[in-house]
Amino acid sequence: MSELQEKLVFDRPESVIDRPTHYCPGCHHGVAHRLVGELLDEMKLREESILIGSIGCSVFLYNYLDIDAVEAPHGRAPAVGTGVKRARPDKFVLTYQGDGDLASIGMAEIMHAANRGERICVVFVNNTVYGMTGGQMAPTTLVGQRTTTCPGGRCRDKEGLPIKMTEIISQLGGVAFAGRASLDSVKNIRTAKKYLRKAFECQVQDRGFGFVELLSACPTNWKMPPVKANERIREEMIPYFPLGVYKDVTEEGGAC
């Protein structure tokens, strides 16, 4: 068998810049970045895209994706994305937000951008903590989960239940696609990409707002090794945050 026949079948997508990331070992942001990059390549959107970065560990996403980008204040990416899309309706507009950014400080912006059916895609990375600031309690922190601001574990009576964003978003009229996937396993990563593609297509086809929640690990702030963190997604997160498609207008045969 000749080496010349050998084919490179898995490599960095062109839309992802060739440089090491600042993320901790086992952090799933890198997987999410890669899926976005693969789709930008496959759907030939790289040259048409404008990324709205957000605040959190993924604030440096603009260093990793080879597309135009603007930085939004904490939680405001869907509003900034609205402004970008209204100003340049021919461009592909993408926000990438964590759970503190999207489900807490940015709750108003995400809800209303979704409800208006803005033709933007939102990649929502849910790892149940504020990562960059050091692992504080997030709106998605599971009951009993210990963080630096709920050292005794999140208490349902005082801090409420973790917010299920995809369920909420899927109820809003302007949403064309809403799905929750997980980045813990090969199978789930493949599904995540499928959902992201759907959400991207909904924008390209002018169908409406696209929303994909990605259950992700934050081994550092969960204070566990990456392999264990992936197990935690399966054992603790997925039972509370069920995976699946919550809304898909393409299946219902029409634009929203």
């Binding site: 404008i50 709205i52 603007v70 939004a72 204040p73 405001r76 509003a79 900034v80 994305g81 609205t82 402004g83 970008v84 899309k85 209204r86 100003a87 340049r88 461009k91 108003a108 912006e109 209303h112």
Partner: peptide
């Protein structure tokens, strides 16, 4: 808050 951030987005383009 949102209106001003929409302005930010449009201005950036």
């Amino acid at each position: 808050v949102a209106a001003a951030n929409m302005l930010l987005g449009a201005g950036a383009t």
